[in-house]
């Protein structure tokens, strides 16, 4: 599969735009459709696409395993940290109104960081699952991706 010229060229053309679209879905989630979960999945899909075309080892160099595993845990910690920040600033757990002097801005800030946490965890988990399955396949069968 990795010898296919058309796939390599199209992949090189498309992957930056997929990544850009993931970032757009992430940061535009307040205004249009989308949010952390969708952005995380699209981000993971871009890297899976890269791994399918250019090989798993190259993808592992771009996004190494330690990074994926760190992302896995960091997302939940970011989310829970937003909740704790609410407590430290004098509100309830996951209370966003106290995160800024203006309550509405506090809400926006809270939602932003929560969505970042969701995206980080989701993309980490998706990539980890893909890496796990794909690396098993490489060991047992012929190397065709």
């Amino acid at each position: 599969m990795s010898r296919d010229l058309i796939l390599r060229v199209i992949g090189k053309l498309l992957i930056p735009f997929i990544l850009l679209f993931a970032v757009y879905v992430q940061f535009h989630g307040d205004f249009g459709p989308g949010g952390g979960f969708q952005a995380g999945v699209i981000l993971a899909a871009a890297i899976v696409f890269y791994a399918l075309i250019f090989g798993l080892e190259n993808a592992r160099q771009v996004v190494p395993d330690w990074l994926v595993e760190t992302m896995l845990a960091c997302g939940v910690l970011i989310y829970a940290g937003v909740g704790l920040a609410g407590i430290f600033l004098g509100g309830n757990y996951l209370d966003y109104f106290v995160l800024d002097h203006d309550a509405i801005h506090g809400q926006h800030r809270g939602i932003f960081w929560v969505e970042v946490g969701v995206a980080v965890t989701v993309s980490g988990v998706m990539l980890k699952i893909f890496y796990m399955f794909a690396s098993r396949g490489n060991l047992n069968g012929p190397e065709d991706y």
Partner: peptide, 23 residues
């Protein structure tokens, strides 16, 4: 909360605990 996308507002703010559980 003045977020134009109601889905995001419900998921991340009103139902913040649920989304934390999902994550």
């Amino acid at each position: 909360v003045d977020v134009p996308n109601v889905v995001t507002a419900v998921l991340a703010s009103f139902r913040g605990y649920d989304t934390l559980g999902e994550t």
